[in-house]
Design a binder for these strands. Structure first.
Length: 512
DNA sequence: TTCCGACAGTGGGGTCGCAAT
DNA sequence: ATTGCGACCCCACTATCGGAA
């Protein structure tokens, strides 16, 4: 199949807003793909490269390449050339990758270039990614969409499911079962604004500590242990203490879901930055492990001794977990019968925060494990802080925000009467707010550097954030975590905005 | 007819490791 | 030795479509 066909379909998918039409367009393309093209065509139309990331970003792609006049590239040729680019390493590799990718783009028409650039940078922006591709695949093969989706979650990969499905037909989907050693996409949580809202929605539920660490899926089959991240990257080699812990558990074969976190001598959580730095260290693991030891904390069991537990209610899965894993290695929790038990749930949240953790996850006791989905049966609750800050600058947006001033630079007042930048945010704005702030900020503009428009510090905005973190980038030595706009405060003058001093006083453990 | 779940898009800060400077 | 870049951790929120209620 020619690449130009994919570029055309992608453009058509982007041009239609109807999801059903996007699905139909993808289905038609998948039906036409030859078996050998399938492993490439399916991931491409789901917006991903089958070989994952190639070490090529915007900087290496910055130079414009003269497009070819006529399409000639086949998808298999493109795939082969990208695989070759991904294999280039060592001294001079950046220049060589740049040269190879330039040559590839030179063989592509303007339309094909747009499509390839989107794929390589991971930004296809066609309003259709994996979920729509799954539906398209189902439509192309006559399989039920739910069955295809389930197979993808269990295989952890759309591509392998697509190949089996297109070669052997819908009955072959039965082959995809939870297998020890093969990671499953983890279940995710929605957000609730309070424990009472969460318990009100779920009824009988478990209220569990939410630890600020890194999600980990642990597979053990006899002596063999494997560890996977939320995106299913294999991180076994980086966390020897987790492998050892898994070997000490009583079961021989299991799959557990949990969090890995660095704790101090008193058992209090260290900062997320320390945990993430440790889990990210992969060259000198022994040294990193001595400096920042980590602990596993489990909260779910997906498979035990050959039994697939995914469809069991959470209460039963947890009973299996409790049989297998001793209490210190399980997440702290309390079980409540419903809204009548609200005080117990709320005091559990308060105690959890006292212990230094970030909040709780409220989980329905009767819910199955919805692999790969943000099921409504897990609700996280975290305290939200707010500040009134001053807009120091704004950046022009991309995509659907093109032509709008989008990303705000936020400052708090300093002792000397100036402002210290604490971070940026693009979150929380409605289309109406974007239009309003674009107009308003342009009237306050005093200059610009690249995409950044500096403004007179006159506009006050109320910001929600999850906490402070240490920063080497910002002048106060701290940055806001997950900042988002709540509303503009036109009733406030900039000299009424919050100060760095009060912010640091509110977060004494983070203050430099 | 209205409501709501699921998706895609739009980016944020930090850290590590590798290659370039 | 330092800097720049890309990959991945963590993540919130709005707009939209289309099926559920």
């Amino acid at each position: 199949m020619l690449l130009t066909r994919l570029a055309d379909v992608s453009r058509e998918v982007a041009a239609t807003s109807a999801r059903s039409r996007k699905i139909a367009l993808l289905a038609e393309l998948f039906r036409d793909a030859e078996p050998d093209d399938v492993p490439v065509v399916i991931p491409y139309l789901a917006g991903r490269l089958p070989q994952g990331r190639l070490g090529i970003g915007w900087k290496l792609l910055g130079r414009r390449v003269e497009p070819a006049a006529e399409p000639s590239l086949t998808v298999r040729e493109v795939d082969a050339r990208l695989t070759a680019i991904g294999r280039v390493t060592g001294v001079g590799s950046q220049a060589e990758r740049g040269r190879l990718v330039g040559a590839l783009l030179g063989a592509a028409t303007a339309d094909e270039q747009r499509f390839l650039l989107g794929l390589i940078t991971g930004e296809v922006r066609q309003g259709a990614l994996e979920a729509v591709a799954v539906e398209g695949l189902a439509q192309a093969t006559g399989a039920a969409a739910v069955d295809v989706r389930r197979a993808v979650m269990l295989a952890g990969s759309l591509q392998t499911v697509a190949q089996v499905l297109l070669t052997d037909g819908p009955p072959a989907l039965d082959r995809f079962r939870l297998t020890v050693g093969r990671p499953v996409l983890p279940m995710l949580a929605h957000t609730a604004s309070s424990v009472s809202e969460a318990v009100g929605r779920l009824g009988a539920c478990a209220v569990e500590e939410k630890l600020d660490g890194i999600r980990v899926q642990v597979h053990r089959d006899g002596a063999e242990v494997r560890l996977y991240t939320r995106a299913l990257d294999d991180i076994t080699d980086r966390l020897p203490e987790l492998t050892a812990a898994a070997r000490e558990l009583r079961g021989e074969r299991f799959v557990l879901d949990g969090e890995v976190i660095a704790l101090d001598e008193r058992g209090r959580p260290r900062s997320f930055q320390e945990t993430a730095g440790r889990v990210g260290s992969r060259v000198d693991v022994a040294t990193a492990a001595r400096a920042v030891p980590v602990s596993p904390v489990f909260f779910d069991a997906l498979s035990v001794d050959g039994r697939d537990l995914l469809d069991l209610p959470f209460a039963e899965r947890h009973a299996e977990l409790a049989r297998l894993v001793p209490e210190p290695m399980r997440v702290r929790r309390t079980v409540v019968a419903g809204p009548g038990d609200l005080p117990a749930a709320e005091s559990f949240l308060a105690e959890t925060l006292d212990r230094g953790h970030e909040g709780v996850v409220v989980k329905a006791l009767d819910a199955p494990y919805s692999a790969g989905r943000r099921g409504a049966s897990w609700l996280k609750v975290k305290p939200v802080h707010t500040l009134d800050l001053v807009v120091l600058a704004a950046e022009w947006g991309h995509g659907r925000r093109t032509g709008r001033l989008s990303n705000l630079h936020l400052g708090a007042r300093t002792a000397d009467g100036g402002f210290a930048m604490l971070g940026k945010t693009f979150k929380g704005m409605t289309d109406a707010m974007l239009a309003w702030q674009t107009e308003r900020l342009q009237n306050l503009a005093v200059g610009s550097e690249g995409p950044v428009v500096r403004v007179r510090p006159e506009l006050v905005v109320e910001i929600a954030y999850d906490g402070l973190q240490r920063s080497t980038r910002y002048p106060a030595g701290v940055a806001l975590r997950f900042a988002r706009v709540l509303r503009y405060r036109e009733d406030k003058r900039p000299d009424e905005a919050d100060t760095v001093e009060t912010l640091l006083a509110a977060h004494p453990r983070v203050a430099p």
